[in-house]
Nucleic acid binder design. Structure first.
Lengths: 255, 255
DNA sequence: CGCAGAGTTGAACGGTGTCAAGTAACGTGG
DNA sequence: CCACGTTACTTGACACCGTTCAACTCTGCG
């Protein structure tokens, strides 16, 4: 709750966009080759944030959009009454701040859940790029559209199903997002606490814990500390798809 | 389930954008004055759709973005198993198809809930406008950002609260959206069935019905047929804010 | 070692889903 | 226009699942 700005600059070797592992997902993805160096020059790279610090706060003026490079962030909505609820997580390759362009103000707090690094593209440089390079216009629109689509899809997951289905769907969603970004998708470390997951899903953390136990018992996945292993993908998909998970009847679960 | 394309063209007098009541919310909102006529010329106006017909289907190639002019549409996700769930509603002034730009394909069915009218801006014309007019780039990005923000905000509403809070929040959201578009916000007709609302909120329609009854009993709102009257806005906000609604104790409700 | 925070597990309560029956609104065809 | 049938909604009773409260374990850190 003390100060919360980013912790100074460039503590990393500053890999140019051309060499970045996320280049395929980040803005340069659809940029013509000759436009990339220019983009690369305008981006502030290698910013880091240690766990618990804010990337931005609700009400803050929008100064830049951020691209997560490593780590995990949570997007938090705080009600006037003071209650917090997690409305989303940001994984490597995802962009923070697009929803704030319209009002020029952030609507949520964004907080690092673990030591994370990110790149920043200041608003005026973004505007400049959009005005001057056709590829960048296309790409910004494409990224926003994609984000919109993903958000929609994520809303369907929240359509009140059983708790186990929700947790399964969450794990699956995470797995898919990691895979799409070229990261391990069947064995990974969760950046977030389960209590954050609970808040995100609208459940209590006890229920999440129980659901996990059930999924573990049915051999769908394994969870030790914060390391998750998907043991049976298709089963996971079935459970996530709404069909309850065989908790009480450990034998036959949706053949 | 028969055919489902739009019902031919221009059955309305085709009001130019400059005279349209929604001009303040639609794309022309932030367009410089001299760019509006050009925009107006490229838009296909006055398309209509009667209740139950599809504006587009999941998997369809994206051919145009649509701006709702009158009526109400629902956005539906159909699971592989065949179960339908409503993921959103489109009100006058809102844009359909922005989330499909990235993949060039629609991800959901969009279905008219009542006789509705809309304008269409074909994809190539949109692209042309974006390339050639600076105001339109700005505006498209602004609209997408706004939509993204609204979607985020709507997700927070779904953060599993009590059923009455959910229903109250839904009514409030609807009221705010209508108000922002210059329509009556305290007495209006719902375009959607309550069962669609139930699906959207992840509840059964019985529970929605009960919640409505509770809200009616507490004097928060009145509902006859599909006509809704908000009787006490602040109380509605309180109930929506998570504090349960005084159902069992009709006397003191959050002073 | 001991404390703090995160997660696990158990028992009882309460809200929603479910099933079922009944009423109101709507559209159709006479 | 009214009788009809269909669909949407209302309301009740009961079971189930998730919340709540509580005690306990595990992990990480000083």
């Amino acid at each position: 709750m003390g100060d919360s700005r980013q912790t100074g600059s460039t503590t990393q070797p500053a890999v140019a966009c051309e060499q970045c592992g996320l280049a395929r997902i980040c803005f340069p993805a659809a940029l013509p080759l000759h436009e990339i160096p220019r983009f690369s020059r305008l981006v502030r790279r290698g910013r880091t944030l240690s766990a618990g610090l804010h990337l931005c706060r609700a009400g803050d003026e929008l100064q830049a959009v951020y691209i997560v490079r490593a780590g995990t962030l949570k997007v938090v909505h705080t009600t006037p009454a003071g209650a917090e609820s997690v409305v989303g997580f940001c994984l490597p390759g995802e962009v923070v701040g697009l929803d704030a362009i319209a009002n020029q103000r952030h609507a949520h707090d964004v907080i690092a859940l673990e030591h994370s690094s990110y790149c920043a593209l200041s608003l005026d440089k973004l505007q400049q790029l959009v005005e001057q390079t056709p590829g960048m216009r296309q790409e910004l629109i494409r990224v926003m559209s994609r984000t919109l689509g993903e958000t929609h899809q994520r809303m369907t997951l929240l359509a009140r199903q059983g708790a186990r289905a929700l947790v399964a769907a969450f794990v699956l969603d995470l797995s898919v997002r990691l895979e799409r970004r070229g990261l391990a998708s069947s064995r990974f470390r969760l950046g977030m606490r389960w209590r954050d997951v609970a808040s995100y899903l609208g459940l209590t953390f006890e229920t999440v814990s129980r659901s996990l136990a059930a999924l573990r018992r049915s051999g769908v996945l394994q969870a030790k500390a914060r390391y998750l292993t998907v043991m049976n993908r298709t089963l996971l998909e079935n459970v996530a798809g709404g069909a309850g998970c065989g908790d009480q009847k450990p034998s036959g679960v949706i053949p």
